[in-house]
Simulated assay, not measured.
Amino acid sequence: MHSLATILLTLSALATLVPAAASAASYRVDAAASDIHWRVYRSGALANLGHNHVISATQFQGSVELAKPPQKSRFLLEIPAAALRVDDPRLRHHYGREFAESIPADAVSATRANMLGPKLLNAGNFPIIRLRGEALVDNPPKKGNLTFATTMDIAGRRLRILLPARIVIAEDSIRATGQFTLSHQQLGLQPFSAALGTLKVSPQIDFSFSIVARRR
């Protein structure tokens, strides 16, 4: 799930916004000031017996080396699968009615175990979700909105996606924000299904991110 995956590449936006005379600069992702999470949804004829869930990344790290020209900049984001959190109460409250129901602790634990298990993230064999990439600079950015070419390594598979982000640059930091949707199929993951498919997880996954990186 990967998120999330776009986040680091969004930092490449810096490369297209930094003045041409600027020297190469190094930034480090500030996980404490950042947010990466995604929503998965119940589906099927017996969907009322299931729950919608919010998955959030914690303890992730990343960096970006800004070069000139921007196509030569390098980006990296690493998310430890074992540190993924299921159903942070703050995030559930933020998303309102669809996530308002109280979920028993055993259901949260079962969801997390299934997510990290061999049928999905296979965290025992692939503990890190890793993202690398570059900004697409064929066209000039419009009001800080850029698209990024992203390579994601997840659960022993590698995929490539194009993702949008909005970049804001401060004196010693940058922030990349955005939302996007992927499917389990795009990520090479098999969503949970039970009772002959009458209770299952929807193919759609909605991602949100707000990543802060600070100049070293």
Rank of each mutant, 00 (worst) to 15 (best):
L84T: 11
K143Y: 13
T151A: 07
R74E: 13
S43C: 03
P141L: 08
W38Y: 15
N114H: 12
G62V: 01
R158N: 05
V40E: 15
E171V: 01
L84P: 08
A110G: 07
D153C: 02
D172P: 01
A57S: 02
P89H: 09
D87M: 02
F75I: 09
R74G: 06
G44M: 03
G44D: 05
R166A: 01
M152T: 12
R42T: 05
P141D: 11
L84R: 12
K142H: 14
T147I: 08
R157P: 00
L146D: 13
L146K: 08
G133W: 02
P141C: 07
I129Y: 01
V108A: 10
A107D: 05
G62N: 03
K119I: 00
S102I: 01
D88W: 07
N139S: 12
E98L: 06
A165M: 04
G96S: 07
R74T: 14
V108P: 09
P104Y: 12
P80A: 10
Q59Y: 11
N114R: 13
G50D: 06
A33I: 00
G117F: 05
L136T: 02
H93V: 04
K72P: 03
P70Y: 10
Y95W: 15
I128V: 07
L46K: 04
P141Q: 13
S63K: 06
A135Q: 08
A82G: 14
P140C: 02
H37M: 00
A135F: 03
G133I: 00
A33G: 01
A107V: 09
V137L: 11
V108D: 15
P89V: 04
A105M: 07
L66P: 03
